[in-house]
Write a protein that binds this DNA or RNA. Sequence first.
DNA 1: GATGAATGAGGATTCATTCAT
DNA 2: CATGAATGAATCCTCATTCAT
Lengths: 240, 240, 240, 240
Amino acid sequence: MCPLIQQVEAVCAKRARRKEARPGELLAAALDLFVEKGFAATKAEEVAARAGVSKGTLFLYFKSKEELFKAVVRENISGNFPAWNAEFDNFQGSTAEMLSYAMNAWWAHVGATQASGITKLMMSEARNFPELAAFYQDEVIRPGNALLARILQRGIDRGEFRPVNIKYGVHSVLAPLMFLTMWKHSLGACVGQDVELVPKDYIAAQIDTLLNGFCTPAKTTLSPTLTQFTPYPLTGDSQA
Amino acid sequence: MCPLIQQVEAVCAKRARRKEARPGELLAAALDLFVEKGFAATKAEEVAARAGVSKGTLFLYFKSKEELFKAVVRENISGNFPAWNAEFDNFQGSTAEMLSYAMNAWWAHVGATQASGITKLMMSEARNFPELAAFYQDEVIRPGNALLARILQRGIDRGEFRPVNIKYGVHSVLAPLMFLTMWKHSLGACVGQDVELVPKDYIAAQIDTLLNGFCTPAKTTLSPTLTQFTPYPLTGDSQA
Amino acid sequence: MCPLIQQVEAVCAKRARRKEARPGELLAAALDLFVEKGFAATKAEEVAARAGVSKGTLFLYFKSKEELFKAVVRENISGNFPAWNAEFDNFQGSTAEMLSYAMNAWWAHVGATQASGITKLMMSEARNFPELAAFYQDEVIRPGNALLARILQRGIDRGEFRPVNIKYGVHSVLAPLMFLTMWKHSLGACVGQDVELVPKDYIAAQIDTLLNGFCTPAKTTLSPTLTQFTPYPLTGDSQA
Amino acid sequence: MCPLIQQVEAVCAKRARRKEARPGELLAAALDLFVEKGFAATKAEEVAARAGVSKGTLFLYFKSKEELFKAVVRENISGNFPAWNAEFDNFQGSTAEMLSYAMNAWWAHVGATQASGITKLMMSEARNFPELAAFYQDEVIRPGNALLARILQRGIDRGEFRPVNIKYGVHSVLAPLMFLTMWKHSLGACVGQDVELVPKDYIAAQIDTLLNGFCTPAKTTLSPTLTQFTPYPLTGDSQA
DNA sequence: GATGAATGAGGATTCATTCAT
DNA sequence: CATGAATGAATCCTCATTCAT
């Protein structure tokens, strides 16, 4: 008679199994929705519903919607940089190969995944969450820039790259990736197939331009395979 | 004939000027706030207050907050493209110079002005305003891409640029500018001076990389002045 | 250039002529709208617009919307009762004829005119305007009931009518007329032709029933013309 | 199996009863207030307060104030007509008795209850809610008229009533009842005891007049008890 | 007088958050 | 722990009323 009773057995069974999964499911649901609609336009109840729990449960795990937001951001800023820096240290090939590899790897492990939503989120909401913005700068921007800077410096040091301005050269690499991310999560998600971007082709083209832009004249002629992505296993990265 | 006529001229003059000024003041205030805080987090009353009027007055000129938002977007998408296309047609120098000029001009006339806030806005809110997203694609994205495509094609046709993929080559130019815009209106507006971007230097560096990336080997050696911005007057553009 | 100037000449010409007509035009417009939509749902600006003046002008003539409402009610409760009582005093025919005449006259001079809207208005809004309700009782209900009571009493005194209860007998006459009025201004104004009431036929039928109900057995057979309305001139009644 | 089940029954019992009761409490409060003050002048918060809940709760059960209004109307138009038609079919006495019974029963089961407020409401607000007006015509006006028409037709067929015009004869019965309802909920609720109507006496008087008006001469002499109400149990009617 | 731009109190509605069950 | 009914602060928007012109 009361539909709750019917559900209870199922709930009893599942609850134990899912109990510890809850926060993760909530964070995933929240990331999706925050990315799609923004912080303010996302309703707590929607997040709970998408995570398959009730409104009350959401607040059991997160003190407030703002805390949920912060948790979403923190959760998805996995500290990949140690692993990535280790890869840098061990990388054997040319710096052109390294840069190509890095950009493709970024797409495979970040850009193409839900984690890329965090970038969109930070760009959209940073000014309402200065504390998070600072956190993001510390955890992502600075390490990321540093890693890119190391790559460029390596190229220059080895005579592979022209002596470009490191600080702004970093953004020549970063900007196309960030733009792709933003596009994917905003205007690119609406209408217009004529403006659609095919990530692999887009990235290949950017790599092509960049390497021509960075490399010393002698190196201008790149083997075409350089822009192809060879999927090195990225240590310490659990995201598919 | 009737003393009213005398009064009316005065009234027409003063009140009309007021009435005509209001929407502009409100749109300016709204642009500021929407860019700063996002659509949802901006209160109608704040916009009114910043424009120096009361809540009610805002709704006298815009049926709803959503209409205000749409008006803000439309208002700031002045049809610069005809003038820019005309400039393209009349441009005398090399395509490298043209590209350099175009990027610097974009910064001076768009990026550095409040109009750049619209880009941030569209990226942040597109998914909540699909109609506007379509409108923006029609009015901005497509014409913008087309103009950049014409520049690249000119370079290729004249043997100045390598035969790069036009569609994605466009984004090599676009992405650094879009990233600068997003950055300026989001994370760049918070904390950290170490990550601060100096627009002129940033753009000069991107031009440097791009031209090296686009140009044919023979042209690889650019005169350093190419990355300096010479302020051509932009016809039909009233923005400082 | 300023459209006001163009209108001014016309305004100058008309203003003198219309100046004293204004309040009347406003009251007429207000009556229409109050009847149609009720007090609260009627906007001051609508009233002004229908009267062909500006919002400001309305408040020049009526201190507030509530005052306007009161004025509308007061204005339309013309003191017809002295004239009607005089007619009663001078009436020559049978009381059946008198009753028939009175009901038809009421329709012609009140029910069919905008004045009937006042009844609708009082029924709908009385509880929000107790002061007006009292006024209406004094000026309309009591004199109206008294007049009907005199008619019934005359019929009884002359042996034409059965000795019915005067107080409630009055409502046997009143109710059909009030119902017709309410109907006309509410549900009757919406949809359904199958429930449409043809006032003349409706009133004729009510007169038929009432006279059969009131008259003494001997008088039961009425000449059929009794239910036809002969348009006696109603002294002191300016309404068409 | 799981202690939750035990809790759930209690919760189901108590909370569900609460949840089921809420809408009714709100509808009752809303009916009161809408009848008293009209739709527009009734504040949502007042309704909630009278129902003993908060503003927010009201909107938990009704999407908007307008939906609340519609629900109030629909709720109070219980389908009494099948039961009433059944009574008609089984009625044994004279048609005069039947009519008398019907009018008294209407008062006892509708006129005297809160349901009569709906009539007032529809008359007052019909023009602002055309859909509801149509609904009301379908659900109340037409079935009601049809039932009354059946009664009159029965009287005529059995030679008890004069061959009156059925369509308008219906309103001879209806009008006094409708007027009583309107009166009770409008002017009658204000001031003046001298114009007070005692429902039982009022109805008795109307019955008296109507029967005299409808009946054939031979039947003109009615037993005085006919106008007294004998409270037949009204099948399927739960209202006191 | 007349106008209509401006005002801001008032009311509908939303939604994060709480808490009894 | 989980639930979802209840809350009320916050916000959009309306419209009677004012007042400079």
